[in-house]
Simulated scan of single mutants.
Amino acid sequence: MLSSDMAAPATQTGMPASDINLTMELLELELSLDGFTTGPDGFAAHVRAAAAAIDGALLFELPASGLIADCDRIAVLRIPRDGSAVMATIFACLETGGNTIRIETPDETTADLKSFAEAFVDVLQRI
């Protein structure tokens, strides 16, 4: 959650403020993901559009396969950090039930996925 008193009803974030400073881009992303109603079939398109609106990018989307609790699908995003050219890797998680998206930051359980995403970006930049 953004904070205990600023939670959006359909979008939550599991990121502590110490991991990624709360930026306008992140707040904008949260607001864009709020009200998601298209279900699993529209997940990737909805997240892609929300990320593009803040000059971020959807890298890829995959089944959660138990990697993140209460999550069916994970979209790996790169978003601007603190309004700069530096990009942060975050995850948009389609919760079980398919109607709620929450933002998560990489942690020890998803460190390998974050490393894969960074390698993916490195390959794309070399092409």
Rank of each mutant, 00 (worst) to 15 (best):
L113V: 01
G97Q: 06
D107K: 00
D5T: 14
N21S: 13
A44M: 14
V47T: 03
A88F: 00
A45L: 11
V123I: 12
M1G: 14
D34H: 10
E108C: 07
H46I: 01
L58N: 04
H46T: 10
A117T: 01
L113T: 00
M87K: 10
R126K: 07
S84V: 10
I103L: 15
D19T: 11
R73Y: 12
P9N: 13
P63G: 07
D72E: 15
M1H: 15
L58G: 05
D5V: 12
I54D: 04
T37W: 10
G56Q: 00
R126D: 00
P80D: 06
T89W: 00
L22M: 11
E25F: 04
P40W: 09
T109W: 10
A7R: 15
D82I: 08
F120S: 01
A92V: 02
L113D: 01
V76M: 04
L62F: 06
R126F: 01
M1S: 13
A69Q: 14
L33N: 08
G56D: 00
G83M: 06
Q125R: 13
A57T: 09
A53N: 09
A69W: 14
A10W: 13
E61H: 05
E25N: 07
A8C: 11
S3H: 09
G83F: 05
I127M: 11
I68H: 02
A8F: 15
I127S: 05
K114A: 13
L29W: 05
A7H: 12
D72K: 14
F36Q: 07
G98D: 01
L59S: 02
T23E: 09
S84H: 09
R78I: 15
L58I: 10
A10H: 12
I101S: 07
